[in-house]
Amino acid sequence: MISVERSMVVGRPAGEVVGYLADFGNTVEWDPGTVACVRLDPGPLVAGARWRNTSRFRGRQTDLGYRLEEYRPDRLVFVGRNRTVTATDDITVRASEGRTLVVYRASLRFHGLARLAAPFLRAEFERLADAVAERLPRVLAQR
């Protein structure tokens, strides 16, 4: 398994940050690996909401079905799956002195033969997490 964590401080209220991040379709704006992300079900954003996320990683495009597993005022957990990987995005949000601390944790658990590639993908996944930590605060500041 590969796991990364990045912390960011943003100048937006925590409630606004959680509301924006709860819509996983917004990943196209702040996750440089996301090519497209489409909501699969109608209705309010609540635990159980689903998306189809198309990402590009190391020149290859892949689709994962994501589900919002947990939606709290201070935490969001999304789990995406396909036949080769389970991806978990765990985002916590905490108000801090008029600003908001966002802690983004992402993990990839590979299945089958894909597990053998995990050690070789860590550096690329770390670079992607760095790019998220750079882009997300900029996107939130513009909202």
Results as ranks from 00 to 15, higher is better:
E97W: 10
T27N: 13
D89E: 11
L45T: 13
R72V: 04
A14F: 01
P119Q: 01
L113G: 10
L68E: 00
P44E: 14
P44S: 13
G19M: 05
V132M: 02
I2N: 01
R12W: 10
D63Y: 03
A129H: 07
L64G: 02
T27L: 07
G43N: 04
A131T: 02
V79E: 01
F110N: 03
R83P: 04
R83D: 13
E126Q: 12
G43C: 08
H111V: 03
C37V: 06
F57L: 12
E124H: 12
I91D: 01
V77G: 00
D41S: 05
S107C: 07
V79M: 01
W51T: 10
Y66K: 04
R99L: 07
E134D: 13
G11A: 11
L64N: 09
A14P: 00
E69G: 00
T27A: 13
V17G: 06
E70R: 11
S96N: 08
I2C: 01
D130H: 07
R72N: 07
R60L: 13
R67K: 11
P44G: 14
A133D: 10
E29Y: 12
F24H: 15
G65I: 14
Y104F: 13
Y71M: 09
V28T: 15
L136A: 00
R52A: 10
V46G: 07
S96L: 14
V85G: 00
L21M: 09
G65Q: 13
P73A: 08
F110C: 03
V18M: 03
D23Y: 09
W30H: 01
L108N: 02
I2A: 00
V139G: 07
A36K: 15
V18E: 02
V139I: 15
V77M: 01
L140K: 10
V139R: 14
Q61M: 14
P137S: 11
T54C: 06
R52Q: 13
R83M: 06
V18H: 01
E16N: 12
V38R: 15
N82H: 12
G98I: 09
V77N: 00
A14W: 00
H111T: 07
L116W: 13
G15N: 09
T84V: 13
R81T: 14
E16H: 09
A114M: 04
T92W: 04
R58Q: 11
R105K: 14
R143W: 05
R83K: 10
R6L: 02
P119K: 00
G65V: 15
R115K: 15
I91T: 04
L40A: 12
G33W: 03
V85Q: 03
S96Q: 15
L136P: 00
D23H: 12
T100Y: 08
T34L: 05
R81A: 13
V28P: 04
R56H: 06
V77Q: 00
G48P: 05
A133E: 11
R81L: 05
